[in-house]
Design a protein around this nucleic acid. Structure first.
Lengths: 336, 336
DNA sequence: TCGGCGTTTTGTAGCGCTACAATATTCTGT
DNA sequence: ACAGAATATTGTAGCGCTACAAAACGCCGA
């Protein structure tokens, strides 16, 4: 439809004519302002604004082989866990003159399709979550050489990575519960084909428990898609294993909140009857009563660093294999 | 960086050579498969896959003036209200061979920047939320003629719109409370520069109350950024107006949940002491106890219809001014 | 006044792809 | 076996922009 009336399409050419300069000067005005004399630049900018000129990114990208758009694949916006991550990315790219576009993908094959779109768009870089990807797209990404950063990944980056150790965090939060006197601690994990940032927690939990001389068999897996609903299921499942359960470690604050709501229904006091630990420090963690003790990953910083890694590489500096650990901290509230 | 080793870049040309056909046949294989003989197509597809060829969308877009990428601007992913909307969009475009990319924008100027990026990318269409946009970008959008659909908008579309009447919904939920015997009903609104899909509720609330012969002065405004925290503030504010408040209408389920948590802290029974109505039917509405009575907008359908409007226009049919009402329904739960 | 230098501006060519028209190939029916 | 239609494939040209090299301009001191 843009083509229907090509006489109306505002192109760099038409701006150039209107401003009485060559197209190259218009191009330079936008891409390398310092190469153009102040006076000329102002004139071009003014004319461009009057005409409503928007550079055709597709053409620029084609001609230069460069792009100032970065693509990020986000697993889900169902809960707020990626909110700060996205905000960090967005804020950072804005300061560098880049643009961020997002695609949502709940499954590996959706992720693959999203990556293909981004590659087709010839973006300057791609941010992914987690370290599990279809092998086809790995080959593809290798071949194109586009900078890729994996977030929430702590080791063995595909290209570059930024994250924290979920294993360390699991250990720290488990030890906190033990230290506070809880002994019959249950662990809730996700079942099915989930990211290693979840699966690697189970062995660490077991290890931490055993190191303290405690039983580590109270483990129950729930479906990641269940959201709050996973809470009641998990509680029921763990009580079937041990009715005298005294604490529970949840994979996210959403599940933890679900458990808390279920405790309410059962008339169980938290943390007296059952202590609850969450993960992610979602907004709800601080709003419900009692507040949730939870793991706070530095998601905002993660988003920022993810973008800076990509931008460095796009700008020529930076190297493959880069790894940034953004750490985490435990937020202690009343639930545990 | 893609250019560093141009001998390694897989282009349509290189696929054509490897498959022993002309570039046009490769192009047709991807864009108009029916124009290419089955046998030839299979061969080209096979070679393309082996070489890891991904069509350069930037080049295709430039040459054809068409794009199969649609951009959507989402106000926030902080809560789940847009989850189903995005899912509806994503599912629909997938069936039509389009791709959806997202940009987040919390403010009008961020929205404007997002729109500029999309226009620069020459997307096939743009989906926005709400009907308030910077006048500059309105001019720009008018000029480029790109199909634009506004969601959550019920009248006077800029180009096309899909939504439901928040005014009708306000009336229905207020009448429900009245019908159930509540008389001292308070209304929570958002203050500041918020979308008309929020502001238009206040007059309807007043009108509904007055029509029933009830007082309509119990109105309190909270900051949209406050999330759950807005609940306690709103409750406090409304109690200052009328300590005997018996029901409360919230702008979102998040605020309603915040109110509910605050009631828990105060030891108030819901709905005996205070009835609570939410908005949006977020996941949390069905998970907390008591469940929230709330307005369920058909967000998923809204997303689907938004995309179908754009795709129809991109495909040549469809007209400006189209409006789709996706309706809403009230989910009755225990809170009111 | 003029060569020489740095700054600013401008042709030229081509990025990878697709619309379109033209050509080549295959398939009808007689 | 062959005209004519239908189908399949292929040149040509150009989309809007930018890298690069070449040209034009302005300014200085001699």
């Amino acid at each position: 439809m843009t083509k229907l009336r090509s006489d109306e399409t505002v192109t760099m050419q038409s701006v150039a004519v209107a401003a009485g300069v060559s197209p190259m000067t218009v191009s330079n005005t936008f891409r390398y302002p310092e190469r153009v004399q102040e006076e000329t630049r102002q004139r071009v900018l003014k004319i461009a604004a009057e005409l409503g000129y928007i550079p055709n990114h597709a053409a620029g990208n084609l001609a230069s082989g460069q792009s100032r758009v970065i693509g990020a694949v986000i697993p889900s916006i169902k809960n707020s866990s990626f909110y700060n991550y996205v905000r960090g990315m967005q804020d950072h790219v804005a300061t560098e003159g880049y643009q961020l576009i997002l695609k949502l993908a709940d499954t590996l094959s959706q992720e693959a399709s999203a990556i293909r779109t981004f590659v087709g768009l010839r973006v300057a870089g791609i941010a992914l979550v987690g370290d599990e990807h279809e092998s086809d797209v790995k080959t593809l990404l290798r071949k194109t050489g586009v900078p890729v950063v994996e977030s929430w990944v702590h080791e063995n980056p595909f290209d570059m990575a930024v994250g924290y150790s979920t294993s360390d965090a699991t250990r720290v939060i488990t030890e906190l519960l033990i230290e506070r006197g809880y002994r019959r601690i249950g662990f809730v994990g996700y079942q099915g084909d989930v990211s290693s940032r979840f699966t690697e927690r189970v062995p660490t939990f077991k290890q931490s428990m055993e190191k303290a001389g405690l039983d580590s068999y109270r483990i129950f897996l729930v479906d990641q898609a269940d959201g709050f609903g996973a809470g009641p299921k998990a509680l029921e499942g763990l009580c079937a294993i041990d009715p005298d359960l005294d604490a529970i470690v949840c994979p996210t604050d959403i599940v933890a909140a679900g458990v808390l709501f279920e405790c309410g229904r059962r008339g169980w006091k938290v943390p007296e009857r059952l202590a609850i630990a969450g993960w992610g420090d979602y907004e709800i963690a601080s709003e419900i009563t009692p507040g949730l003790t939870t793991v706070q990953p530095h998601s905002y910083e993660m988003g920022q660093r993810a973008m800076s890694l990509i931008i460095e590489r796009a700008a020529g500096s930076g190297a493959t294999g880069m790894m940034v650990d953004t750490g985490f901290h435990i937020v202690k509230r009343a639930s545990a």
